[in-house]
């Protein structure tokens, strides 16, 4: 059994607003092992980015981690003083973001920005840092990295910029990479290339990856495990193959839209209408009930907890396992 790199336990990230404290992340527990990829899926507003920023210790104020633990290789990150957290950030835990166009600073060269990431965590000579930065660019398959080193972000395409972001994030060889929708802004071919690159780099370094996306296709391509998020909660968690063979939560099924099971039941082919409710206007009971085709009276009263169906498969739904009801 390989080492558990990250173990999130009962994490709550809240914002104090005029409407009271809202929980963008509401009691999430997840873990990732070395060398594996956890895919997190969910529509816009389900709290995926807040979850990853919580792990990074970068929740924007007035947000804060209100409850729970983020255990990173045995240390609780939520208890770490800022300077210790900074030592880990970009070093042991790295993050790449959705917007390659704006995530790099336009006024500094690509090379400088990678060197800067290295220098924050390593004491080495300028010449050595430059070498390492060029090596990092080479690793992400950027052609003629020596030349690119001195270029500015605006001189690169979106795909190239995302490669630079990855080079920067991986420069210190982290144990964990959080990729928040790394390919959403890119076109399909580039998207496939970037995902392939991530997989190769993972095989090489053995890092754990949390891949955030709203695209189940991306998850199918690279993840080992999937967690489906809805309105700040995990509603289903299982190995990838399991989720695609036997999705149990109505929301997961909805996300799959047109991915029918073998012994198909027409009722399970639903596309979800509506949107994720904002955290300050959650319905009573199951948060998915206004959009759920399987909704029953109990669903409007009490929230279902995430419960294990099998060892690896957990679902938060009153009707699970679904076969008994349809």
């Amino acid at each position: 059994m390989s080492e558990t790199i990250l173990d999130i336990r009962g994490l709550v990230t809240a914002f104090n607003t005029r409407n009271g404290a809202i929980r963008a992340v509401d009691g999430i527990s997840l873990s990732v092992k070395r060398g594996t990829t956890l895919g997190i899926v969910g529509e816009s507003g389900s709290g995926k980015s807040m979850l990853s920023l919580s792990v990074m210790g970068l929740v924007p104020p007035p947000g804060r981690i209100a409850e729970g633990q983020v255990m990173f290789r045995g240390t609780d990150l939520t208890k770490l003083p800022p300077s210790k957290m900074r030592d880990l950030r970009g070093n042991r835990i790295s993050m790449i973001f959705q917007e390659p166009m704006t995530s790099l600073n336009p006024v500094h060269t690509v090379g400088f920005q990678i060197v800067e990431a290295l220098r924050a965590h390593r004491k080495e000579t300028a010449a050595r840092l430059k070498e390492e930065a060029i090596e990092a660019l080479r690793k992400v398959r950027i052609p003629s990295p020596e030349r690119r080193f001195d270029e500015y972000p605006h001189q690169l395409s979106g795909g190239m910029r995302q490669r630079v972001m990855i080079a920067m994030a991986l420069a210190c060889k982290p144990d964990l990479l959080i990729a928040d929708e790394p390919t959403t802004a890119l076109d399909v071919t580039i998207q496939a290339q970037i995902l392939e690159l991530l997989r190769e780099l993972q095989a090489e370094t053995g890092m754990a990856i949390i891949l955030i996306t709203h695209d189940l296709g991306v998850v199918a391509q690279v993840a080992d495990e999937v967690a489906v998020m809805y309105a700040g909660k995990v509603v289903e968690r299982a190995p990838v193959s399991r989720v695609f063979q036997d999705p149990q939560h109505p929301y997961t099924i909805g996300l799959m839209g047109s991915m029918p099971r073998m012994e198909e039941d027409v009722d399970r082919l639903v596309a979800i209408s509506g949107v994720v409710p904002p955290p300050f206007r959650l319905p009573p009971g199951c948060r998915f009930n206004p959009r759920c085709p399987f909704v029953g009276s109990e669903c409007r009263v009490e929230q279902p907890a995430l419960a294990a169906l099998t060892d690896a498969h957990a679902v938060a739904c009153w009707k699970a396992p679904l076969e008994e009801h349809v």
């Binding site: 950030r89 790295s94 973001f97 704006t102 995530s103 790099l104 972001m165």
Partner: peptide, 22 residues
Amino acid sequence: GADHVRTARAKGLPERTVVTRH
């Protein structure tokens, strides 16, 4: 509030550097 400032923080840079340089 820009994205690249968030990137700078994600790199583990100290706040002083984030504010002045980025």
